[in-house]
Design a protein around this nucleic acid. Structure first.
Length: 284
DNA sequence: AACCATCCCAACCGCATACAT
DNA sequence: TATGTATGCGGTTGGGATGGT
């Protein structure tokens, strides 16, 4: 059964916004903020649902929205980021101050996708999906001169210069930060890759200790694995991070990609992920 | 001028996640 | 821990604008 749209319940208005509605919403948000979108339309006297108000504000009324066509540079940035991140429009938008995820998504589908196809710019076989908890302003990059990370195996590692990830509700703060440093655009190529990829200690490269005839790493080897998730109490276990990270799937994708692309101990990720009911075959 | 096809974008929907209790 | 609610995100769509015939 399909859930009825929220606006239908109360006979609330849908469709295009009028100038009057825009004015009411804009002045209300500027005056009182938007701590509670659900209550906002009632307080402001709008016959709209909170979701609709939020969308209108975020995509159109926000004062920092940049209008007009995308510059060549902006388009290049979108293409580049899309190649790295896939359809993660909100993350891409956070790199383009004044542009909304909706706008970027539209531009991608109407212009850029065609251009990319025309130019024969192929999509990577698989995106390296960095967990959201690791995506901050300085973390959108890749190892120098390569599309994919080249880590081989993983025993212990730590992140360099790990900084807290703003919550999704803080998206505007990401934009604001970049604006204070002036550039309209944050250049992908200016980001230091050492800030995102782990610093690996020597033990990292050692072969896993295997249980005889099982194809499985020994339990002591698994127990010794160090995972660099900062928010978890259980830093030795990706599943320990599962409940903490903003997007659990992203965490697993990250690890999966990391391991699968490794040349050293390919058995480990499959076995390890299966331990957490993550069907590896679907991800290959 | 009239019709049709395509483009473009604002707005919507449903799901995932975060947060509160 | 379980459940309910609020918010954010990404995919999709409706309809106005534009261009071609």
């Amino acid at each position: 059964m399909v859930r009825a749209p929220c606006c239908e319940k109360m006979g609330l208005k849908r469709g295009p916004w009028t100038v009057e509605e825009d004015q009411i919403l804009k002045s209300h948000v500027q005056k009182y903020g938007h701590s509670n979108w659900r209550a906002l339309p009632k307080q402001a006297g709008l016959q709209r649902c909170g979701k609709s108000c939020r969308l209108r504000w975020v995509n159109y009324l926000r004062p920092d929205i940049k209008r007009g066509n995308f510059s060549k540079e902006e388009e290049e940035t979108i293409i580049k980021l899309h190649e790295m991140l896939g359809n993660r429009w909100s993350v891409i938008a956070s790199r383009l101050p004044g542009r909304t995820d909706n706008e970027i998504k539209n531009v991608w589908h109407t212009h850029l996708l065609k251009r990319v196809k025309q130019n024969g710019e192929s999509k990577p076989e698989k995106h390296i999906r960095i967990p959201d908890c690791h995506l901050n302003d300085t973390e959108l990059s890749q190892p120098e001169g390569s599309t994919n990370p080249t880590l081989s195996g993983c025993k212990s590692m730590e992140y360099a210069q790990m900084s807290p990830q703003p919550s999704s509700s803080d998206r505007s703060s990401v934009t604001d930060t970049s604006e204070t440093n002036s550039p309209d655009l944050i250049k992908v190529e200016n980001i230091d890759s050492s800030e995102i990829y782990p610093v690996i200690d020597e033990d990292f490269w050692s072969e896993p200790e295997m249980v005889e005839n099982s194809g499985m790493p020994s339990s002591s080897f698994l127990d010794d694995l160090q995972f660099p998730f900062p928010s978890s109490d259980s830093t030795t276990d990706p599943a320990g991070c599962y409940g903490y990270g903003p997007k659990a799937d992203d965490n697993m994708d990250f690890w999966y990609n990391l391991f699968i692309k490794s040349g050293g101990i390919e058995e480990l990720p499959v076995q390890y992920l299966q331990r957490y009911n993550y069907v590896a075959d679907e991800r290959i």
